[in-house]
Design a protein around this nucleic acid. Structure first.
Lengths: 218, 218
DNA sequence: ATAAAAGTTTAGGGTTATCTAAAAAATTTT
DNA sequence: AAAATTTTTTAGATAACCCTAAACTTTTAT
C-alpha cells in the first residue's frame, strides 16, 4: 500500500524513465516534483524499501516490475478520471489535469472498474494518451511529432505531448483537436513554423514548438 | 483552507452538535473519530485558531457560523458523490460510504458544481439525507422514526438514521427502500417489533431497533 | 591529472497528525 | 464536604514529508 506522496513520486519516475525503460536521476525527479534533491533521496529510500524501484547511490533509480504495475494503475486512474471530467461533466481539456491529480489517489478498485464501464472502456484520454486496462496493458500507436512530418500526406492529430493548459487553450482556439485531420501546406525555413490546413477547411500557421508538441499518425 | 483531517473533524463536530445547535464534548469527538482525547484537544486548538469552532477549556466546543458553512460544504460533497456512485455507477447503497469519505475531500469548486448539474441537482442522497445546495441550504422535511408511528396510516420511508452497510443490506433484502410505502399491521407488545406491509404487497416483521432507524413521513 | 563544478547524500530540523502517560479540572459518589 | 472517579489537558514522543546546510561523489574543464 502506497501513500499519496509515494504514488506521485512513482508516477513521476515512471514517466521520466520512458515507461520504465531507462534510469532516472535524483535531480530530474526533484525538478518535476518541485522538491529538493534531499527530499527525493529520502523518498527513494522509502520506495526502494517497498521494492518499487531499485536504487544505487549516485546512479539514479530504475523502476521495478512491481513499481511499474503500481504506476500504471495510477496512470489508469488519472486518465479515466480525465475522460470522465470531459465526457460526462463537460470540462474542457485544459481544466482537467489538477482535478485528476487528486482523483487518481482515491483508493477503491470497485470505483475504478465501475467508472471504466460507465465510460464504455475508453482507450485514450482527452489528450490522446492511452489508458491502461485493468491488467496494465494499453495499445501503443506509433506516433510522431507533427514537426517530423514531410510532404502533404493526410495526417491525423493523435495526442499532445505536453498538455499545459495554455497550449491546450491555444489549440482549441485555432481549431486543433484530437482526431482532427491536417495537411502541411508549407514549412517556413526561417523559423521552422508550419502552415497547416485543418479538416480541409481552415489554414493556420503554427510555431515549431507547437508542431513538436503535437503527436500525429500519417 | 482546511486539511483533509481538519475537514473530517469539522464534519464530525457538525453532526455531533445536531447541525450546530449544541456543544460537543472532547470525548464524543474522540469516540466518533476513533482517536484519543489528547489528539482531539490538539485538533480543537487548530480549528479554534482558524475560527471554525469556539472553544473553552473543559467545556466542549461549539461550531461557528463559518465552521458550519465549511462543514455543510463537506456534507454537500459527500452526498453528491454518494448520489453519483449509486445513480451513475450503479453502486448499491451499502457500498458508497467509504468511497464518498475519500471523494468529499477533493478540492475543486468547479467539479462539485458540474457534478451537481450532471446529477440534475438532487435534493436527497441514496440514504434519504438532504443535500445542501451551493449556498448551504437544504429542505428539511419533518421526519419521525417508524417506531413512533401509530395506526394504519399510509407511511413513506424517507431516510435511514444509521446507514451501516449491514443495516442497508438487510433493508434491501426485505424490500425496504427510500420512497417505499408501508403500513403498520401490528405492533408486538413483547419486544416492540412491527409487522409491516411494504408497497401493499409484502408483509414482514422488523425489530424495534430497525424501526427506530427508519425515518418516515405519515 | 588535477582543480573546479555539478550532482547526490547525510545531518539536523520543522510541521502535521497521531500516540501514551501524567497532571489538572470537573463530576459523581459516599 | 471530602474522596473517588471521570474527563480533559499538557508534556513528551513518533512517523511522514519536507527543508537547509554541509559533506561526499561524480563529471567536466583546464
Amino acid at each position: 500500500m502506497l501513500s499519496y506522496t509515494e504514488e506521485n513520486y512513482l508516477k513521476a519516475i515512471y514517466h521520466l524513465s520512458g515507461s520504465g525503460t531507462k534510469a532516472v536521476l535524483t535531480s530530474e525527479i526533484a525538478e518535476t516534483m518541485n522538491t529538493r534533491a534531499a527530499s527525493v533521496t529520502d523518498m527513494i529510500k522509502k520506495l526502494s524499501a517497498k521494492n518499487m524501484i531499485s536504487y544505487e547511490k549516485y546512479y539514479g533509480v530504475k523502476i521495478t516490475r512491481q513499481g511499474k504495475a503500481e504506476a500504471l494503475m495510477v496512470v489508469r486512474k488519472h486518465r479515466l478520471w480525465e475522460t470522465f471530467l470531459v465526457q460526462k461533466l463537460h470540462f474542457s481539456w485544459d481544466e482537467v489535469h489538477d482535478v485528476a491529480e487528486q482523483l487518481e489517489h482515491i483508493q477503491s478498485a470497485l470505483l475504478i472498474e465501475k467508472l471504466d464501464e460507465f465510460l464504455e472502456f475508453p482507450t485514450v484520454d482527452p489528450h490522446g494518451h492511452p489508458i491502461p486496462d485493468k491488467t496494465g496493458k494499453f495499445v501503443e500507436v506509433r506516433q510522431i511529432p507533427l514537426s517530423d512530418c514531410s510532404g502533404k500526406k493526410k495526417i491525423t492529430i493523435r495526442a499532445v505531448r505536453n498538455g499545459s493548459p495554455s497550449f491546450l487553450q491555444y489549440l482549441s482556439k485555432i481549431g486543433v483537436y484530437i482526431g482532427a485531420t491536417v495537411a502541411i501546406l508549407e514549412k517556413i525555413e526561417f523559423d521552422g513554423s508550419l502552415e497547416i490546413m485543418i479538416d480541409g477547411k481552415k489554414k493556420v500557421f503554427i510555431s515549431r514548438e507547437a508542431s513538436q508538441n503535437l503527436l500525429v499518425t500519417e
